[in-house]
């Protein structure tokens, strides 16, 4: 089975993050950039399926030159190759613009399955699998906590707030995964050494046949009108225990959906 995994380099969510000078886009130059956390689960799932069925795992990323660092790191986990779409015209793209680029790149690759993280820690819009499914005319099985190759298709347990749904698609599909699906492996020294020699194909918009005007800030269908810094954390909520402290704590945790 040939699998393409969508990976995205994002600013480290453990560090302080900020917007770029235009006030509307994420600052990707300062600070530490990492592989979007949920994408590591997608990579692990792809490697697991490859171990079962054979085939190739290819990474696909769209991003500036420094996204390559994250691609190399992702390759050290075990995928076979990577495709890196990089073009200045892409900067400022919204989700739809990025989907057009990804769809065009996917059109040049052979795959049975596309895997992605269920969301990114920067944009966090969770729409990419649906947009790609529409553009590629394949099924979208999103928010998976379990994935199985099932005959001519795929079977997924789709995580919901109350439990899970079982959904199946025949033929090619794009599956997005949550962090409940597996435990990603660590790279190894051997993987790091091998990653240096794995092919990474650089592709531009022109090579994909995507008109520059359809992507980037100018081609975006959505516009950020304004952005506010996160409010300073307020004072905590204090529960006085007058015999019902436990109940109040549980009520609070339930209201916040922790239990």
């Amino acid at each position: 089975m040939n699998i393409v995994v969508l990976v995205k380099q994002v600013p480290d969510s453990g560090a302080e993050r900020s917007l770029a000078g235009d006030g509307n886009t994420v600052d990707r130059t300062g600070g530490t950039n990492v592989i979007n956390e949920m994408d590591e689960y997608a990579i692990e799932e792809a490697l697991r399926l490859k171990d079962e069925t054979g085939g190739q795992v290819t990474l696909l990323t769209v991003g500036p030159d420094h996204a390559l660092e994250s691609v190399r790191k992702a390759l050290s986990m075990g995928p076979d190759a990577a495709v890196h779409v990089s073009d200045e015209a892409i900067a400022g793209s919204d989700a739809l613009g990025t989907a057009k680029v990804l769809a065009a790149a996917l059109g040049t690759l052979e795959y049975d399955l596309i895997l992605s993280g269920a969301e990114s820690t920067d944009g966090g819009v969770q729409v990419m699998p649906h947009m790609l499914a529409e553009l590629l005319d394949i099924a979208a099985l999103t928010g998976a906590r379990k994935l199985t190759a099932d005959g001519d298709g795929f079977l997924v347990e789709r995580q919901t707030e109350d439990g899970y749904e079982v959904v199946r698609a025949s033929g090619k599909a794009i599956v997005s995964v949550w962090d409940t699906i597996n435990t990603p492996r660590y790279p190894s020294l051997k993987g790091i050494m091998a990653a240096k020699r794995k092919p990474v194909t650089a592709v531009t918009l022109a090579e994909l046949g995507v008109p520059a005007g359809e992507v980037g800030a100018a081609g975006a269908a959505t516009t950020v009108l304004s952005a506010e810094p996160r409010p300073v954390r307020g004072a905590g909520q204090r529960v006085e225990d007058t015999g019902d402290g436990g109940e109040k704590l549980v009520e609070y945790l339930a209201a916040e959906k922790f239990v």
Partner: peptide, 15 residues
């Protein structure tokens, strides 16, 4: 080397 940076990052992640 770049691989040294990757090895240190790996050690840091595991740590």
């Amino acid at each position: 080397s770049d691989e040294a940076a990757a090895i240190l990052e790996l050690a840091g992640d595991i740590a």
